[in-house]
Design a protein around this nucleic acid. Structure first.
Lengths: 205, 205, 205, 205
DNA sequence: TATGAATGAGCTTTCATTCAT
DNA sequence: CATGAATGAAAGCTCATTCAT
């Protein structure tokens, strides 16, 4: 029991530090981008010494990738939950769009990083970053699966589910960029209504 | 007259150098991104000495911004031309989509740079980069103007022209990213048919 | 009595720890050299926490010097014993050569450290390392004393005992280096026969 | 011609810088050893900026290895010359011993580095340092060749030339270490007389 | 005593920019 | 105008040492 308690206290401390570093990293990377962010600044914002970062992460890049991955995992989990909660095609599309808009609205810092990471996808990828692309593909696949069969059942025009999912994903990403860029003049809900209406009109039989 | 001839020869040489530097810069920035590109490599690819770059451009960043600006100017000019050549709303939308897809298909290097530059738009902008955003807004404004009034004339559902233009612009940007990312398995024309069909279905009365 | 027993147990534990640290240090310093060895690795090999090392030694350098000193003390003690066991000049020279070759053959790790330490002797010495030189001089002095008077007694050509001792010491050090370097293709005994024969031929009347 | 002159001026400058850096490196590495020497200090002693070092050498280690190699090449060349100038076995041995003693007497800084480098030979060698060992073997091989056949001709006791050469090489290295260590109380010539007398007595028929 | 997380000085290396030729 | 050697600030990372537990 004593050992367990110690272990726990230890873990708590460790997780706390790790979370603080992650939060600092997100904030700094979001503000400066990967290249212009300095390990010094991340450490300072996290309130720890530079060397401490290296107890938790191998390198600057590792910190960065961890911040991308953790955000993406959370987003994926949320998408899964929300999609599972509704059953009609239109509701699923709405859930997908709303979840993505909401998530990035709530995590502006993460969005900046994620958005910028897309750039790198265009270049030759070191395997270590492959996951970014894979996790993006997973989101699309998730939506594609959710609307798959709708055409056959006559709930939608006869269109390829994968292509439709891709378009919807890109569109919401664009909207998120727009909202971050211009400043969101509309609420997430207003945005959702507008986009889903537009999309659904284009898909409906 | 002799002076004029010399002047001209001068200009020709100068423009030639400048163009070579620009081409080299595009190629290197596209491959490495701004931070990882080195002035050394650009000079080498351009076939000039490093110091020479600084006779034509104030700094590495200036070279970069010039490469973004020149591409954007060309794209804007093309959009203007293509939009002026057609008159119905659907044709204009199709022209807009096709021009953007075609242009980036032809200038992959520039697209990588442009795409990545969007990241920076999310951050506080030094005035020197403001133009990127402005020129993006111009593209949207151009399309918005092209479809403005369509709703009133009953040629389209009653939707805000600016919002619609924005959605279309983001959608094509997303598609370009997708094509660059996955490798374009479809021709530009096939892509245009699919997207315009989808959009128009969503907009049509 | 209880206190005494506790004290003893204490000492035993302490000596055990100290010995383990020393063994680990020898192994790591031998493999990596002083600069490239890390305190972390020594602690790991010793099976104790890093902080524990600092309970037994003041610093990394102190650990290092202790490992040099302990080896040198053992070597000196052996030389003393072996030289005391024989009486003719030739036997003493043979004992000296054999003991050094044997000792380093048995303690390769220590030899690497000792050998490398000679380098530092060439530089300005912090007092803390003076002992390395002194203990080397002691070995030579020991041999010098062992052959002193031999010239006078006509057992040897008239040569300065100190110089002769020095030459023999350097020669055996060189041979040890050679054996460690090339891999010992000959047994210690074969080596001894060859060298002592050569030396003695040079010294003999 | 103009081009040739420029080229030359260029080369001269470059060689001058390179030599200055090399001299500074030798001095600093000799005083501090590889690990404790800093690139900063070498640059300062050389009178150039830190970055300049990297125009001439890839890395700190490259600077170091260059300093070892250049010294060893010079020593080898000298040994070749001196050995070629004499013909009897005893003269050749004397030439070998004298050249090595003299060279290191004149290049104390280099000797410190070279001497210390021997330590590393005991450890697993990255290929980049293999040359140190090879060039040492060359010296021995050179002497072995110079005395080879002497036994057959009856000019020497029947001993293996390679082993004898090795012993002589190690002995002179030891003497050099000794001279550097204790401060040379004897002139090189006195040293040579003593050692060669000793050796020759041991070898002579 | 024993621990090992935390520290931060200090290191090597890179590269945009300058300027003498 | 063109060159490219020289510069030096700046950054990522390591690791001996400390100290709260």
């Amino acid at each position: 029991m004593s050992a367990a308690r110690q272990r726990t206290r230890h873990d708590v401390l460790s997780e706390f530090r790790s979370a603080e570093i992650m939060a600092a990293a997100r904030s700094v990377f979001a503000a400066k981008g990967f290249a212009d962010a300095t390990v010094d600044e991340i450490a300072q914002v996290a309130g720890v010494a530079k060397g401490t970062l290296y107890l938790y992460y191998r390198s600057k890049r590792a910190i960065y990738l961890a911040s991308v991955r953790s955000g993406l995992e959370q987003l994926l989990a949320r998408l899964r939950d929300e999609l599972a909660g509704v059953s009609t095609v239109k509701d699923r599309i709405r859930a997908f769009v709303r979840t993505r808009l909401t998530y990035f609205d709530e995590h502006r810092d993460f969005f900046r990083i994620y958005y910028s990471e897309f750039t790198n996808l265009l270049n030759v990828l070191p395997a270590s970053q492959r996951f970014v692309r894979e996790m993006y593909e997973q989101q699309i696949a998730m939506l594609a699966a959710a609307i798959d069969g709708a055409s056959d059942r006559g709930a939608m025009r006869p269109l390829d589910a994968g292509k439709v999912a891709l378009v919807i994903a890109e569109l919401t990403r664009g909207l998120n960029g727009e909202r971050a860029l211009r400043g969101s003049t509309r609420t997430v809900d207003e945005e959702v209504v507008f986009v889903v209406d537009l999309i659904w009109n284009g898909l409906e039989r």
